[in-house]
Amino acid sequence: NQASVVANQLIPINVALTLVMMRSEVVTPVGIPAEDIPRLVSMQVNRAVPLGTTLMPDMVKGYA
């Protein structure tokens, strides 16, 4: 099963993503693939993302 990107903490809106904010985990439904974590660094989410939430492509500005 493919690992997805999961919030490692509350990720506020309009804050640049850092490695420490994200972890990889096998979850259902599948979200952004874990291998895209380096690409996500410095991008921003378009809504607050609670701890443990799977990041979906539509949550990250400029990802999709």
Rank of each mutant, 00 (worst) to 15 (best):
A34Y: 07
M21A: 04
S42L: 11
V5N: 02
Q2N: 11
S4T: 04
V41M: 07
V49P: 01
L19V: 09
N1H: 13
P33C: 07
P33Q: 06
V27I: 08
M59Q: 05
A48Y: 09
M21S: 04
I37N: 00
S4Q: 01
M56E: 06
D58G: 09
G31D: 01
V41N: 04
E25N: 08
N46H: 11
V60C: 03
A34Q: 06
R47W: 07
A7T: 09
P29D: 06
S4R: 02
G52C: 04
L17Q: 00
S24E: 08
S42V: 03
A7V: 07
G31T: 02
T53G: 12
R23T: 06
M59C: 05
T28Y: 12
M22P: 00
M43C: 06
V30M: 15
V30W: 12
N1T: 15
V27A: 08
P57G: 07
N46Q: 12
M56Y: 11
L17P: 00
L17N: 00
S4M: 02
L17M: 12
M59F: 10
V5K: 01
A48T: 14
Q9V: 14
V26M: 08
L51I: 15
S42W: 13
K61T: 15
M43D: 03
M43I: 04
Q44H: 14
Y63H: 04
P50D: 09
V30S: 10
L55E: 01
M21I: 02
G62E: 12
R47L: 06
T28I: 10
T18Y: 03
M22L: 14
M59A: 07
A16Y: 11
V6Q: 03
R47T: 15
A3I: 07
A64F: 06
V45Q: 00
I13Q: 14
E35K: 07
Q44I: 09
V20H: 14
V30D: 11
I32A: 01
G31P: 00
D58I: 09
D36L: 10
N14M: 07
A16L: 09
V5Q: 02
V60I: 13
S4C: 06
I11Y: 02
D36F: 14
D58Y: 11
M21G: 00
K61V: 10
V30L: 14
E25F: 06
S24D: 06
I13K: 13
L10R: 12
A3M: 14
L40D: 02
Y63V: 04
V45N: 00
D36S: 09
V15Q: 15
L10S: 13
V6F: 03
A7H: 02
A64S: 14
T18C: 04
V15H: 11
M21K: 00
V6I: 15
V20R: 15
R23G: 05
V60E: 01
R47H: 10
L17V: 04
P57S: 07
S42C: 15
V41C: 08
M43N: 04
V20K: 12
Q9G: 05
Y63P: 04
I13V: 10
E35N: 10
N46D: 08
G62F: 12
Q9D: 09
N14E: 09
S42K: 10
L10E: 13
L40Y: 02
T53I: 09
V6W: 02
I32N: 00
V41G: 00
T54R: 03
T54F: 03
M56D: 04
D36A: 10
I37D: 01
L19T: 07
T28R: 04
G31H: 02
P50I: 05
L40E: 00
G31S: 01
V60G: 00
V49T: 05
S42H: 11
P12Y: 04
I32R: 00
D36T: 08
P57T: 06
L55C: 03
N1V: 15
P29F: 03
T18A: 09
D36G: 05
E35Y: 10
N1Q: 14
D36M: 11
L51C: 14
T28P: 01
A7M: 04
Q9M: 11
A64I: 13
T28D: 15
T18E: 07
L55G: 02
V41Y: 05
V27P: 00
E25K: 08
I13C: 13
I37K: 06
G31N: 01
V60Q: 01
M43G: 04
P50T: 10
N46V: 13
I11Q: 01
G52H: 09
E25L: 06
I32P: 01
I13W: 10
A48N: 09
R47E: 07
I32C: 04
P38R: 10
P57C: 07
M22T: 00
V5F: 02
L40T: 00
V27C: 05
L51H: 10
Q44V: 15
A7I: 03
T54L: 04
K61G: 07
V49C: 06
V41L: 15
L17F: 03
L55V: 08
G31E: 01
V45L: 14
P57F: 06
V26E: 15
N46F: 13
A16V: 12
T18P: 00
P38D: 08
T53F: 12
S4N: 00
Q44S: 13
A7F: 03
I13D: 12
S42Y: 08
M43K: 09
N46C: 15
T53W: 14
I11M: 06
M56K: 08
V15F: 14
A7P: 01
P33R: 07
A3T: 08
M56I: 07
A16D: 09
N1E: 15
R23M: 04
L17R: 00
S24I: 08
A48K: 09
I32L: 05
G62Y: 11
R47S: 08
M21P: 00
P29W: 03
P50M: 08
T18R: 12
R47A: 07
I11K: 01
A7N: 01
T53H: 15
P12G: 09
P33H: 09
E35L: 09
L51T: 13
R39Y: 10
L40V: 06
P33F: 11
V27F: 02
M56H: 08
M59E: 01
P29A: 04
L51G: 09
L17S: 00
S4G: 05
Q44M: 15
V27N: 03
V5G: 01
M21D: 04
A64G: 13
A48V: 10
N46R: 13
Q9L: 12
A16N: 10
V6N: 02
I11D: 00
Q44L: 12
V15E: 14
A3F: 09
V6G: 01
V60N: 02
K61P: 13
R23A: 06
G31R: 02
A34E: 08
V60D: 02
N8M: 10
P38S: 14
L17A: 00
G62N: 12
Q9P: 00
G52A: 07
I13G: 09
T54I: 07
L10Y: 12
V27R: 09
L51V: 10
S24W: 08
V41P: 01
T53S: 08
